[in-house]
Design a protein around this nucleic acid. Structure first.
Lengths: 224, 224
DNA sequence: TTTCAAATAATAGTATTACTATCATAAATA
DNA sequence: TATTTATGATAGTAATACTATTATTTGAAA
């Protein structure tokens, strides 16, 4: 039996559900590829259509605009991370071991997950590092937020906050620390690779150094 | 005698020095206003020209494109912060008091500094919160970095790293912690105002809560 | 098996953006 | 006074971010 992981997406993000057709899946697959390769600014629906072998109008039937498509794939990623988190921390008692798993999960370069045919998680992880914050750093963040576009991020943040509170029920900033962990796992990775003097990570450019930094930061902060 | 603060800018950022003419100063002033009001995505040289009362071509004589203009005003801001930092920590012996000043300086909503005629620092601070990371989260970050576009940010990061080391000479990640402080001072502010469930700050939306969070984070991390 | 609706392909068109180019004029300077 | 230099006014182009129309294919219900 072949297991397929399905992540439930907010229907306001799309006009037609891309999971329900070959064209839809191709849109997701090639979007990830193109945004990964050239960045979100250089990404256009025309290039995407050409890469798939369909027309611009074809893409517009699935997504209203490229911003919603970006939010879609980012939401998908957070849903997938949420699943990985519950899977990997299942049956673990010690909350500090759970928290270490979280830090590693967010910081380590991901391998492609074969149970999700049309999504390359490794590329998606890179997209999150370089483009993730563009999902919410917009003028219309309020409108998007009202439509729950950032729910998967918030859910993850809550889940991590819970683990932090299990480690230290008296810690006062579990959500802020959770969002700090998430954002810094990505940003320190970006800095390490592109602006290394903003970090203390040697030229090896190894994510394990980011993990050490974050573990030191987090456990010194929450220790009682 | 009237003191005017001049911040030395990287000449590769502009075609003609905007400090040297009325039109140039107007470009800076109105850019800050427009980016603050409508966000960087909605900002165009046409709208800017209209707002000043000049033509698009007039703006292009000063800046090659809107990205360089954004990097320019952001660099200016970091230069100004650097100055504030050295000014405010001058004659202070205790490094942990210096570090607290840094956190406050980065987190607190800024007031307009009258010694800089055409720049509204309060608006600039808001721009940094919402648009700051767009300066480097691009495809061409490597090229920009080679041209030293991010030098003011790096200098600030180094200066903060030095203070961290004064507090604890054995701390292993002074630069990463410095960039974490800078980025989180802004990001937690953005979250507080737009995605509050990613933080633990009450509805008062008071930056002093961010300061408390960061002080707790930083001093627990570096304490010996 | 036919029929009918839904999905897709092909093409065209528009407003805006991000520029480049040209030429005339005003101001500053040598 | 001659001449550079900055600005203003206008025009033009390729690309982007869409919308609209029509024709064709496909797949499910009658």
């Amino acid at each position: 039996m072949k297991l397929e992981l399905q992540i439930k997406m907010n229907p306001s993000l799309y006009l037609r559900d891309p999971e329900q057709s070959e064209l839809g899946k191709n849109i997701i697959k090639h979007s990830i590829q193109l945004i990964h390769d050239n960045g979100f600014e250089a990404f256009t629906f025309k290039k995407l259509a050409e890469s798939i072998g369909t027309t611009e109008a074809g893409v517009y039937r699935y997504f209203e605009n490229k911003h919603k498509l970006l939010v879609y794939i980012i939401s998908w990623y957070w849903g997938w991370i949420q699943f990985q988190l519950s899977y990997q921390t299942n049956n673990i008692e010690d909350p500090s071991i759970k928290l270490k798993k979280v830090i590693t999960l967010l910081s380590k370069n991901v391998e492609d997950d074969i149970t999700t045919g049309h999504v390359d998680e490794a590329q998606l992880h890179q997209i999150l590092i370089s483009e993730g914050s563009k999902a919410y750093l917009t003028n219309h963040v309020g409108i998007d937020n009202k439509q729950q576009f950032f729910q998967p991020y918030k859910d993850l943040c809550n889940a991590i906050g819970e683990i932090i509170l299990e480690c230290n029920p008296k810690y006062k900033y579990p959500h802020s620390l959770a969002s700090t962990i998430i954002e810094m796992a990505h940003l320190q990775n970006f800095f390490m690779n592109h602006l290394p003097s903003l970090t203390d990570f040697s030229k090896s450019k190894d994510e394990s150094e980011i993990i050490k930094y974050l573990e030191d930061l987090v456990f010194n902060t929450i220790r009682i």
